[in-house]
């Protein structure tokens, strides 16, 4: 799948890789993701530990940004309350396309421990914005963060960039057949 894997299968004695422009663009995109860290609650503390020396989140090529306009994906870590939900939506809308969302922790996946009587807790951030990767746990372990990040990279790698509409149409007509 990855571009580098194809080096094992050299063309004309090595050094040359045949592939699509799309692959190299996606490869670049997936390996340098800037993110907007939306730290809300306990999960954010675990994410801080993830960012620190032991787990070193930056090795995925991620750089924390404080502005949504520079971010490729947004990381929702923690409990989303109604008071906060509207702000999340605004920030999400301010991000430039293509944009992705990682939802971290049970709270932002589905309401978590507060799903039943939490009168002020939104039961899942996917009620207001679309989510690409869910990371379960309360709080998720740092390993889970890594797994989630790899999932997102995979997703980006498989995306179409050119002639999206045409391909989409073709897929749809294929489906209809």
């Amino acid at each position: 799948m990855g571009l580098l894997n194809r080096l094992d299968d050299p063309y004309e004695g090595g050094g040359i890789v045949l592939g699509k422009i799309e692959d190299i663009l996606n490869w670049g995109r997936s390996k340098s993701n800037w993110y907007l860290h939306f730290g809300l609650a306990c999960c954010a503390i675990e994410f801080m530990a993830m960012n620190a020396s032991h787990f070193d989140f930056m090795r995925f090529g991620t750089i924390p940004r404080t502005s949504p306009r520079q971010a490729d994906f947004i990381m929702i870590t923690g409990t989303v309350t109604f008071k906060m939900a509207e702000r999340i939506k605004i920030l999400y809308e301010q991000m430039a396309e293509p944009k992705y969302v990682i939802s971290v922790g049970s709270c932002s996946n589905c309401g978590g421990p507060y799903w039943e009587h939490g009168y002020h807790v939104l039961k899942g951030v996917d009620k207001i914005i679309p989510v690409d990767v869910y990371i379960p746990g309360c709080p998720p372990r740092p390993e889970a963060f890594q797994e989630g990040m790899i999932k997102l990279q995979k997703k980006i790698n498989e995306q179409a960039i050119f002639n999206k509409r045409k391909r989409l149409k073709k897929e749809q007509s294929d489906d209809n057949k």
Partner: peptide, 9 residues
């Protein structure tokens, strides 16, 4: 609901 968001899951 609050501002169009459902309060129950």
């Amino acid at each position: 609901s609050y501002h169009g968001m459902k309060t129950s899951s």
